[in-house]
Design a protein around this nucleic acid. Structure first.
Length: 889
RNA sequence: AGGCACGUAGCUCAGUGGCUAGAGCGCCGCCUUGACACGGCGGAGGUCGGCGGUUCAAUCCCGCCCGUGCCUACCA
């Protein structure tokens, strides 16, 4: 080597393993990244340089499935890109641990139930229930013990999630970890309540509320779903007071007949016009109820006239309110028919004896049993309100209709009148929609989901839950002299007290001795809907109410990644909170991942048993392979968990390992990139960098991956490396230096372009030489490639010379394939025919082509009629194999 | 019922108002290795869901239809 040039920092490939040991590297790099603190948020840098992520806190009690690594990888890829662009990343991780899923898991895991009347047992230790224990009735534990068990289980679950995230290479700043039940989140949620209370956005009300009879808790509109269920129209004859007329209503809920409080039909319906203002008489119970007209009644549906009950559905609730009808709540919180007495003021009857006899058949039964029983009673002419035979007209007519369920529930929702806390949202629709407009949705069409939901909002947000493991509502109620609570004047905890548990803590101005005493106070025992806390994740991260300066620096966030099925819950509620608290958007961009489908493109669900767990896939295909699969999906696109794609990712990582080994083991002097082919390659590489960067900025990471991968495989490893392999070992130092410099630049840039997708293998390759050479220990802190990487390298004389060389070499390869000889076979001589233009351009790169083809002698002839880029190879004479082997020794 | 998205090679997916529509996997044939057989070269394989329309030109734009998924609504 000449004395003026120092050698490049090359590696000795024999010191590297033959194959990449991914599991070992994944553990090693994860620890190393932690040690270097490369994912740490730097609070000293300004907002403009900071990229704030509002990470979805996963429900830890749910099972781990590939959907988790899928969507979180999308976020991580974007975050890693922004980090390399120089942004100060704020990327926390939280766990959504409170709420029903955890309670249910704890109930199953230990085979316990919570009964608040049970005394607290200190230091209670329970073993996971075995099959035998499950056959016995569940053990009853106190509320405090139950909550302790919930904490115990969530801690374990959080650990397994964290291990998965780390293994998957999420570049989370683990010092920012939170859990939605921890003290900080409880405080933030209670601050939120107090702020909404002060602003007049929350209220409590005793009103009919959608209720799950199994979980025995109120359910919000966002947590309901429709399910198709078989049902039946029952035609039932009603009488009319003071006349011998009758009419027939149709209902799918005959068991609610004892709760009938009115009858209605459309005002223009000729059949029933004469009845308005009079009273109907129910069969069986002989209860007189008002008949009133309503525009909402559809003359086409059923018989056009219907009974109003408390409560069959939301329309019943509306009629009940508008008409000021009586309240006859017969369905209990347990989903059974309550014991009621006909003949009194609440349940009037013209024939109390018969009514009570009939109701006796229903009392205490569940909904289905009561329905069957009432139908039997209606078949008996004795129950008729008119004396005109059996009240049930004809046979029930079976239909298929959709019924509202709690999304986690097993029985239809009932409307039960209970006292609940609500956030007033119906008066905020316009503002909520306006905030949705200010946010950029990726992909844009997902905005429609938010708009549809917001426009269709029909109920205020019910935020109280009659459960145990959650953030307590920070409220007490004063008790009057008789010990009755004054719900109109709740005592809300002071901010300084928070977080409080009203069941333990005492309200300001009261002594603990006054608890549950007349003239004293009583605690609100309900907890918040888990979304009440989850909707504050941007504020939890920013320290809202705790550190205003920091909040100003981190709120609103830059991106909110999430999946599309929780737009109506998580996204919606978070927008609502930011609106009500600070009249702002919570983040500037929403990034929506699609769903993961099973390999047959069916939705994965536990009930179908087609859920794939991620760790075995990561172990089989490496973390980089799993990330490749995730990242190959565009935002918002539902994607099949296709193992073929994992495999491709693993192959890409392997290829990068080998290409890196080759490129970095080339020894040469540091020389400028000058050869025509090298400059042509660099020009293509620069174009790739521009495209990939534009794709990332356009929230299209999948395009960036495809382009980079294709370039890496097609142009770099299959073409460029092969074409310059010989020259990279040439005796001509300038030629050799140019080739090696371009090879190293190619590897350097491609490793950085792939780093967001394949963090492990890129870091591995980076560590061999670039880390030292560039003074940047981690590729994940290295600058994203840009024009400065190519400064000083001239444009090629002919912009097409790279393709020309690759095409010509490809033609020779095809010639070898046709002759069934190996690509490495030496060629004694051959003739290349090219169109006149190509023939004149080819010599600039022909030396590299002939080297790659191992061709000793050649002739280049111009031939009219050939297309550009098409080369005919004639008269090829291959060196005999034995001779070829001998020569190369 | 309304809305959104999707329908491209056997499979999973790219793609563009215009040259012969692409990739990977799978398949077939060949190559035995000096970065990589966890590889390379070559090949077969598509009426771009259907029918109309706009256009010199449509897989791409428009309309209708069919199919799939989701969202919203209705659900006496």
């Amino acid at each position: 080597m000449s004395e003026n040039y120092r050698p490049v920092l090359s590696i000795d490939p024999s010191r590297l393993p033959k194959h990449f040991d991914a599991p070992e590297a994944e553990v090693r790099w994860d620890a190393e990244w932690d040690r270097q603190g490369i994912y740490r948020y730097d609070p000293s840098r300004p907002r403009a340089e900071t990229f704030v992520v509002d990470t979805p806190p996963p429900t830890v009690s749910g099972s781990l499935h590939v959907g988790h690594v899928f969507s979180y990888t999308h976020t991580d890829v974007l975050v890693r890109y922004r980090r390399m662009r120089g942004d100060n990343i704020f990327y926390p991780m939280g766990w959504d641990d409170n709420g029903l899923p955890t309670e249910r898991r704890v109930q199953n895991y230990f085979h316990v139930r919570c009964d608040p009347r049970e005394p607290y047992v200190p230091d209670l230790v329970l073993e996971p229930a075995n099959a035998k224990a499950r056959k016995r009735p569940p053990r009853m534990v106190s509320r405090a013990n139950f909550i302790e068990l919930c904490h115990q289980v969530t801690l374990e679950d959080e650990k397994s999630f964290m291990e998965l995230w780390r293994r998957n290479g999420l570049s989370v700043d683990w010092s920012l970890e939170y859990a939605t039940i921890d003290e900080r989140c409880r405080r933030t949620a209670q601050y939120s309540f107090r702020d909404l209370f002060e602003k007049g956005h929350v209220y409590n009300e005793d009103a009919p509320t959608t209720w799950d009879v199994d979980f025995q808790t109120a359910v919000a509109q966002a947590e309901m779903e429709d399910r198709e269920r078989p049902g039946a129209y029952h035609h039932i004859e009603f009488g009319v007071q003071g006349g011998d007329e009758s009419f027939v209503i149709a209902t799918t809920r005959p068991e609610l007949l004892p709760a009938c409080v009115g009858v209605t039909a459309h005002p223009d319906d000729e059949r029933y016009r004469g009845l308005f203002g009079r009273e109907a008489l129910t069969p069986l119970f002989r209860t007189p109820v008002p008949i009133f007209p309503s525009e909402v009644a559809d003359p086409e549906k059923g018989t056009g006239v219907l009974m109003v009950c408390t409560f069959g559905d939301a329309t019943d609730v509306a009629w009940w309110r508008e008409q000021g009808l009586a309240l006859r709540q017969i369905v209990t919180r347990e989903g059974r028919l309550a014991a009621v007495e006909f003949g009194g003021e609440d349940f009037p009857s013209l024939d109390p004896e018969a009514a009570n006899a009939a109701y006796e058949q229903l009392s205490g039964k569940n909904i289905n049993q009561a329905r069957n029983a009432v139908v039997e009673l209606l078949r008996d002419p004795a129950g008729s309100a008119t004396g005109g035979g059996a009240p049930l007209v004809g046979d029930p007519e079976t239909i298929q209709h959709s019924v509202k369920f709690y999304e986690k529930g097993d029985r239809p929702l009932e409307f039960v009148s209970t006292r609940q806390w609500f956030v007033r949202l119906l008066d905020q629709k316009e503002q909520l929609l306006a905030k949705g407009e200010q946010i950029e949705w990726h992909p844009a069409f997902m905005h429609a989901r938010y708009r549809d939901w917001t426009e269709g909002l029909s109920l205020d947000w019910c935020i109280s839950r009659q459960r145990y493991f959650g953030v307590p509502i920070p409220v007490w109620y004063p008790l009057d002299g008789q010990g009755a609570p004054d719900y109109a004047h709740p005592i809300v905890a002071e901010r300084e007290q928070m977080p409080v548990d009203p069941l333990i803590d005492t309200p300001p101005g009261y002594d603990e001795a006054a608890r549950d005493q007349p003239g004293g106070f009583c605690a609100e025992s309900d907890i918040f809907d888990t979304w009440f806390t989850s909707s504050l994740t941007p504020q939890i991260g920013s320290g809202w109410g705790v550190d205003d300066e920091r909040h100003g620096r981190l709120f609103p966030a830059d991106i909110r990644p999430q999946s599309h099925e929780i737009i109506r819950t998580w996204a919606f509620y978070t927008i609502a909170k930011a609106l009500l608290h600070e009249d702002t958007v919570p983040w500037h961009h929403v990034v929506i991942s699609g769903w993961v489908l099973d390999p047959d493109r069916k939705k994965m669900s536990k009930s179908q048993g087609n859920v794939l767990t991620p760790l075995p896939l990561i172990e089989k295909y490496t973390a980089d392979g799993a990330r490749y699969w995730s990242a190959s999906a565009r935002l918002g696109t539902d994607t099949a968990a296709d193992e073929k794609v994992f495999k491709v990712g693993k192959r890409l990582a392997t290829k990068l390992f080998n290409a890196g080994k080759f490129v970095l083991s080339q020894e040469a002097e540091v020389r400028p990139v000058e050869a025509e082919l090298d400059r042509a390659f660099v020009a293509k590489l620069a174009a790739l960098v521009e495209r990939a960067t534009a794709s990332f900025d356009d929230y299209n990471h999948a395009q960036a991956l495809t382009d980079t991968e294709t370039f890496f495989w097609t142009h770099f490893t299959d073409a460029y490396i092969e074409l310059v392999k010989t020259r990279a070992r040439s005796q001509d130092e300038a030629q050799r230096g140019s080739a090696v410099a371009a090879l190293r630049l190619g590897l350097d840039v491609l490793v950085r372009l792939l780093a967001p997708f394949l963090p492990y293998i890129t870091e591995e390759v980076w560590s061999w030489a670039f880390a030292e050479e560039k003074g940047q220990p981690s590729v994940h802190r290295a600058p994203w490639p840009d024009a400065s990487d190519f400064a000083g390298i001239g444009a090629p004389d002919d912009p097409g010379s790279f393709e020309l060389a690759a095409d010509c070499w490809g033609s020779i390869n095809k010639c070898k394939a046709d002759a069934e000889v190996s690509m490495g076979r030496e060629v004694a001589t051959l003739t290349i025919l090219a169109c006149p233009s190509d023939a004149s351009r080819l010599p600039a790169v022909l030396g590299d082509v002939l080297d790659a083809a191992r061709c000793a002698e050649h002739r280049l002839e111009s031939r009219e009629g050939l297309d550009s880029g098409v080369f005919a190879i004639e008269g090829a004479e291959f060196v005999a194999r034995e001779e070829s082997v001998k020569r190369s020794d």
